[in-house]
Amino acid sequence: MATVQVDGLEIAYDRVGDGPPVVFLHGAALDAREWQPQLDALADAFTVVAWDEPGAGRSSDIPESFSLADYARCLAAVVESLGLGPAHIAGLSWGGTVALEFYRHHPDLVRTLILADTYAGWKGSLPADEVRARVEGVHRMLAAPPGAFDPTLPGLFACEPPAAYVPLLEAMEAVVRPQTLRTQLLIMADTDQRDLLPTVSVPALLLWGDRDVRSPMAVARQFQDEIPDTRLVVIPGAGHVSNLERPGEFNEAVRDFCHAHS
């Protein structure tokens, strides 16, 4: 584990391998451990990094006023600490929204974008009634008494979670911080990054599970239509957390794309 300090916050990340840097950004209610299959598979050719975003895993808590730009600023410190120049920035779900915001503020640190099962913010990618339903659902989750608090979001997998990763998922869910979820809820419900998509001037890989119900294929098509230089890879039989449900296909697509643009 390595760490960087940003305005009094300690940001932790895992780093393995050697080669062009690929930095993975996890989804909401998860942490760096989400990317274990990618760290294991890609370290033979790349410097693979998975961060614990502020407010998750081994990193410091976040203040209530923490913003999407603050996440981007902390990520910049991680990428700069690698000393390897611009990185392939890969984000899944909430992590993809962070990746886009990172590109907005720090395009010089981005070699490519890898956007998996993600959003241009909920406001920018989902119907208003769906956003309202998600906000209400997270509020109900946060209002549950401590013993009943369950941060598991519906629709993460096409079928049952892969058995090999159930202990890992349970370990991550056990340490989710309600304040982090509350902050992310407010950010996602109010974020619309559609203005950013046409300005992306680096190559972008879109990775989508064909059975993703949280960020359906219509969102992938939105990204494909708006980002100038994109490649869409659809992963059959995968839901929202496609990197765990179909890690072989996911890793192969990342490997080929990063080799092509390194």
Results as ranks from 00 to 15, higher is better:
A128F: 14
G239S: 05
A77R: 03
L153M: 13
G239L: 01
T97Q: 06
L142C: 02
N243F: 08
G209S: 06
C74G: 08
A41L: 12
A41T: 15
S60Q: 10
A90V: 04
R211Q: 12
V22M: 07
A253W: 03
G239Y: 01
G83C: 06
V175R: 15
A220Y: 00
D108K: 14
L168A: 05
M141K: 03
A43R: 10
P127F: 11
Q222P: 01
L9C: 08
N251A: 10
H88F: 06
A56P: 09
E173C: 14
E226F: 12
A29P: 10
D129T: 14
A174R: 13
D108W: 15
P151L: 12
M1E: 14
R33F: 12
I187D: 01
P154G: 03
P151D: 07
S242H: 07
R132K: 15
R140C: 14
G27Y: 07
L92F: 07
A171V: 06
P198M: 09
W94Q: 15
M217F: 15
M172Q: 11
S59H: 00
I89C: 03
V48Y: 00
P20H: 05
D70Y: 09
P154M: 08
G27V: 05
F250C: 09
D190M: 13
D229H: 12
V135C: 12
P154S: 02
R104N: 11
R194Q: 13
L169M: 15
P167C: 05
A69T: 14
G121K: 03
P63V: 03
A164T: 09
L109F: 07
L169F: 07
R73A: 14
H261L: 11
S125C: 06
P228T: 01
D31S: 04
A77P: 08
I227K: 02
R182S: 14
L232G: 04
A72S: 13
G137E: 14
R104A: 12
R33H: 11
D229S: 12
L206Y: 02
I114W: 01
A143R: 09
S81K: 01
G248P: 10
F102A: 04
G57K: 03
D150H: 08
C74R: 05
L181E: 09
V233L: 07
E80W: 10
D52C: 05
P37K: 03
Q224A: 15
V48T: 02
H88N: 06
A163E: 11
P146L: 10
S242G: 10
A87H: 00
L84M: 11
F257W: 05
D61N: 12
G27R: 03
W94Y: 13
E249I: 13
D40E: 12
E245A: 04
E64N: 12
W35Q: 00
R182C: 08
A238E: 03
Q184P: 09
L156V: 10
R134Q: 14
L232H: 08
A253G: 05
S262I: 07
A43M: 14
D44R: 15
G155K: 00
D44N: 11
G8M: 04
